[in-house]
Nucleic acid binder design. Structure first.
Length: 618
DNA sequence: TTAGGGTTAG
């Protein structure tokens, strides 16, 4: 009868039949409980298996191992840990099968103390010479950032498992030690596909994309077969390089070798197209995919956003929700950024409500994007409210608030937030200072801007980027100090770009400075030959100052070069309707009122021409 | 053991 029942347990097709068999086991065959637990775990009906398990008076070691192993495989790490603790409490010995899953769960649950205790226990039980135990512990230490412990175990291994080599390569790679990773790879007696993959991702992780692609070629020369993981890495490298040719040849390899396109690999193809600017191709691949997960959707949405196609990004976000894929923080961050740039107050408010309804507003990434979005559509008080309610703030959070305040003309508040950032141990970066310099620029605080620029270089050791230089040039220009701006440009440690010369040109127009205008246009014509706006501006400056002949010459030259004036529209959102207008446009039915308001605003604005003490204590 | 998506500026 025992045997019949066991055969039955093996053969049942439907999980619920196991429950019926359970009744029989309890009633007549308690000795078969362990066998039933194993069957339940293999289905898996883990909770049910656990109930049966808990009623077994003295579960054998291998059964406890199976339970821990299943919990660990299903990412129920807390349960695995709990099961392990009760195993120890009940005096059950551990063996070499207990260690790998429990150590894996300790790592995933970030319970490093318990992981180390398991290691001690393994040593006291004499398991530390078992190759599976060693590999599991190496993995635990290298992923947990304790490279030295991992190295010690590796040194002690009698037979160095290939997996252990790969584990160390990956650990060195994560710690940025490319040389050590490379040495490990060279020392390996047998290189598997995974070894090559580790090496390729090591290069990629540390920024050597071309080196990674060279190893991909060498891998093929060595007759080592690339798999899906190799190609997913290679495609992601092509994406980062924006190298469409390399990306296409990787894709050809996938098709030519009939590699199975799992979701990750297909997403990598989509991503490669997106980062190379081939949005249409990306969408075609996306539409062809049979299964798309939240990463696929997020990548496509972000791709539209980054390629300047906000409407399609928002449309796709709706499709995503309709397909019952729950947007996570990454997807929301992209969508929030799209709304922030869309200029539509309605779209911003809708997504804002959605985010709050999903309980995602406390996520640090989402909240930062959310407060940025509100500040861009002018709702700075809402931004502040979100900012104040955030339990955790990262550099992006602080930056978003500083930049938001600066853009909304609240310079002093921006400085105050910076002060608070420093006091609470926040780490400012290059963008933080762009925000502060923008604040100075908007308030006309030249001396303070220069002081912040010095403070950034000296106290925070941040190397100024072209954007920082542009802020200073803008600062001088806005306060009419064109000569200072020009001298600063000449002293810059980087080559001035079109943005820099544009600032000087715009200021030259405001202050009718022909000398600097001509100079800037000469530079702009070289740096940005496809544009024409600077010729228009130069011609306007000539006409406004009575230099009719020069104005005519510029216009002639523009005709000769077939340079066309591109209409630059401005827009304003009133009651969720976008109104578009041109300079001097009178087509709007209420244009008289519009101009009346604009002129009224211009009368009200006053120029701050003195620096004030912000109390920043620089 | 090896693989994928995002925010702040310009």
């Amino acid at each position: 009868m025992d045997r019949d029942l066991m055969r039955l347990m093996r053969s049942v097709k439907h999980p619920s039949h196991l429950k019926q068999i359970h009744a029989l086991v309890i009633a007549a065959f308690p000795s078969l409980a362990s066998f039933l637990v194993r069957r339940l775990l293999s289905v898996p009906m883990v909770d049910y298996a656990r109930e049966v398990f808990d009623r077994i008076p003295q579960p054998e070691q291998s059964l406890s191992n199976s339970l821990i192993s299943v919990y660990s495989r299903l990412s129920s790490h807390e349960e695995a840990i709990e099961a392990f603790r009760s195993m120890i409490r009940n005096g059950v010995c551990i063996d070499s099968y207990t260690v790998p899953p429990i150590v894996k769960s300790c790592l995933s649950a970030a319970d490093f103390d318990l992981g180390k205790q398991v290691h001690c226990l393994a040593i006291s039980c004499g398991l530390d010479t078992d190759v599976f135990v060693q590999t599991a512990l190496m993995n635990f230490y290298s992923r947990g950032g304790e490279l030295a412990s991992a190295e010690r175990i590796f040194e002690k291994m009698d037979t160095k498992d290939p997996v252990a080599y790969n584990c160390l390569i990956s650990a060195y790679s994560k710690s940025g030690d490319v040389l050590a990773a490379r040495k490990m790879f060279d020392e390996m007696p047998e290189k598997s596909t995974a070894s090559w993959n580790s090496l390729i991702s090591c290069c990629a992780r540390n920024g050597d994309y071309r080196g990674a692609l060279r190893f991909f070629e060498r891998m093929k020369d060595d007759k080592c077969t690339p798999n899906e993981i190799t190609l997913a890495s290679v495609l992601s490298i092509c994406a980062k390089l924006g190298d469409l040719n390399a990306g296409l040849s990787a894709k050809k390899f996938i098709d030519g070798n009939n590699l199975y396109r799992n979701t990750i690999l297909s997403t990598a193809v989509v991503e490669m197209y997106l980062k190379c600017g081939a949005v249409g191709e990306a969408r075609r691949e996306f539409d062809k995919m049979k299964k798309r997960d939240v990463v696929t959707w997020s990548a496509m949405i972000a791709g539209y956003a980054q390629n300047g196609r906000p409407d399609e990004a928002l449309e796709l976000f709706e499709n995503m929700k309709n397909e019952n894929i729950k947007p996570n923080d990454v997807a929301l961050v992209s969508v929030l950024s799209v709304c922030a740039d869309s200029g539509s107050v309605k779209a911003c408010e809708e997504i804002g409500c959605y985010v709050e309804s999903q309980g995602m507003a406390s996520n640090v990434f989402v909240a930062s994007a959310l407060l940025d979005m509100y500040s861009k559509c002018g709702n700075i008080s809402k931004s502040r409210q979100i900012f104040l309610n955030m339990p955790k703030k990262d550099t992006v959070t602080w930056n978003s608030m500083i930049v938001g305040l600066a853009m909304n003309g609240l310079s002093e508040d921006a400085f105050a937030v910076y002060k608070q950032m420093i006091e609470t141990g926040g780490q400012p970066n290059d963008i933080t200072f762009i925000g502060l310099l923008t604040a100075c620029s908007h308030a006309g605080l030249v001396e303070m801007g220069l002081e912040i620029f010095r403070h950034m270089k000296i106290d925070h050791e941040i190397v100024p980027q072209i954007e920082h230089y542009a802020c200073i040039v803008d600062l001088y220009c806005r306060s009419g100090r064109l000569k200072d701006a020009y001298d600063f440009i000449c002293r810059m440690e980087v080559e001035p770009n079109a943005v820099i010369w544009s600032s000087l040109l715009s200021a030259s127009r405001i202050h009718m400075n022909i000398e600097f205008a001509e100079l800037s246009v000469k530079k702009l014509a070289k740096l940005d030959p496809d544009s024409s706006w600077y010729y228009v501006l130069l011609s306007n400056i000539y006409s406004s100052t009575g230099h009719w002949k020069e104005a005519l010459n510029v216009q002639k030259m523009m005709k000769g070069k077939k340079v066309q004036k591109v209409a630059a529209y401005s827009w304003v959102d009133v009651d969720n309707k976008l109104h578009r207008f041109l300079v001097g446009d009178t087509s709007h039915p209420r244009n008289t009122e519009v101009y009346g308001t604009v002129n009224g605003l211009a009368m009200q604005s006053t120029w701050v021409d003195h620096d004030f003490d912000s109390g920043l204590g620089l």
